[in-house]
């Protein structure tokens, strides 16, 4: 088991958002988390990555058998948890090169590997820049400064390609992307799919899932997973919307 979430409860500003969420992820699996706005999708992504605005009030998350919630965000990242942000952040004056060389070497340190010097790093980054069709001068530019929304998201996937994480959490990575950017992002994700790398794809829509076929699909509502299934669930949602599933859930709960 790569990730095991048990009865996870979390709140922000004393408002409960996750209310007993359970999820198991095996290595190599792609899980889609879908749900209406306000269901707690982004909260789940943030709690897993360790954003301190969220307070975990109950439950547990184990990552490769280790309690994830006890770790600082940077320790989680070093152990192989990656969050692609819904809104990647701009950092003026810090170049992508300095940022990612530092990040890659942090992860390598954790793995007991020697650091990459600037030449090794450039060579390592070159393929990934081409894969995501980023600007050739990407590494010299400040992190996300002056980037369009699509470029920012591609930059996050570029970072994911460099860091080679074990668990990739994509938080609404498809939102705001035009069709070309969406294809590039999907290519980037698919290029990383492997037997020992798992994905949590958090999304409101089906779009990205047409390119990145999930093994499991979960519907998140009111802080819990109310329905799980295979790819067919995506089509069901597309046709019926969330209302039908929510209605069934409420009906079942009332019984």
């Amino acid at each position: 088991m790569l990730l095991e979430i048990k009865n996870l409860q979390a709140q922000i500003d004393e408002k409960p958002i996750l209310k007993g969420l359970n999820l198991d992820i095996q290595p190599g699996e792609v899980h889609a988390i879908m749900g209406p706005n306000g269901a707690g999708k982004s909260t789940l992504a943030s709690v897993l990555a360790g954003r301190d605005a969220y307070e975990v009030t109950g439950g547990s998350v184990t990552f490769e058998g280790e309690e994830l919630l006890d770790l600082d965000p940077e320790e989680r990242a070093r152990k192989g948890v990656f969050l692609a942000f819904q809104y990647p952040v701009e950092i003026p004056g810090v170049s992508n090169k300095l940022f990612m060389q530092t990040a890659v070497n942090s992860v390598r340190e954790e793995q007991g590997l020697p650091p990459l010097d600037m030449f090794d790093f450039d060579a390592y980054a070159k393929d990934k820049i081409e894969l995501l069709e980023m600007h050739p001068d990407l590494l010299e530019r400040s992190v996300n400064v002056g980037f369009s929304g699509g470029e920012k998201k591609r930059n996050d996937i570029f970072q994911m390609a460099l860091l080679q994480p074990k668990l990739c959490i994509l938080d609404e990575t498809d939102s705001g992307l035009d069709i070309d950017a969406l294809r590039l992002v999907a290519n980037g994700i698919n290029a990383l799919r492997s037997d020992d790398r798992s994905f949590i794809v958090v999304t409101h829509y089906q779009r990205l899932l047409d390119y990145v076929k999930p093994d499991h699909v979960h519907v998140l509502y009111d802080g819990k997973i109310i329905k799980s299934g295979g790819f067919e669930l995506v089509h069901e949602l597309e046709e019926q919307g969330y209302d039908e599933i929510i209605k069934q859930y409420r009906h079942a709960k009332a019984d």
């Binding site: 990555a49 360790g50 954003r51 301190d52 600082d72 965000p73 940077e74 989680r76 990242a77 070093r78 990656f82 969050l83 942000f85 990647p88 952040v89 950092i91 940022f99 990612m100 530092t102 990040a103 942090s106 992860v107 954790e110 992190v143 970072q159 860091l163």
Partner: peptide, 8 residues
Amino acid sequence: FYLQARGI
């Protein structure tokens, strides 16, 4: 947090 989330 953005930098932390990348292992820094």
